[in-house]
């Protein structure tokens, strides 16, 4: 079980890249936190581990 944006999800053996694609998010417009730490883009091929608390911010335009 992985917590994604506060919701428990069954996402066994899914990489961050695959997770973002399933959410229709473009990696160049996201920031992914695992626990309190940012996940560097170079590690987006990492497979999510059981118990990971993942927070995904999909940025939108305007400012």
């Amino acid at each position: 079980m992985v917590i994604i944006n506060g919701e428990p999800k069954d996402t066994a053996s899914v990489t961050v890249t695959e997770l973002l694609a399933s959410m229709n998010l473009r990696p160049e417009r996201t920031a992914v936190m695992i626990g309190n730490d940012i996940l560097p883009k170079a590690q987006y091929d990492r497979v999510l581990a059981d118990g990971d608390e993942v927070e995904i911010i999909g940025f939108v335009g305007g400012g």
């Binding site: 996201t30 920031a31 730490d37 560097p40 911010i57 940025f59 305007g62 400012g63």
Partner: peptide, 18 residues
């Protein structure tokens, strides 16, 4: 972070936190 373009927002948030 007070940019307007989403790619730039993501770039800065990632860069600062890393």
């Amino acid at each position: 972070e007070a940019f307007d373009l989403p790619d730039q927002k993501a770039m800065l948030v990632n860069a600062v936190m890393e």
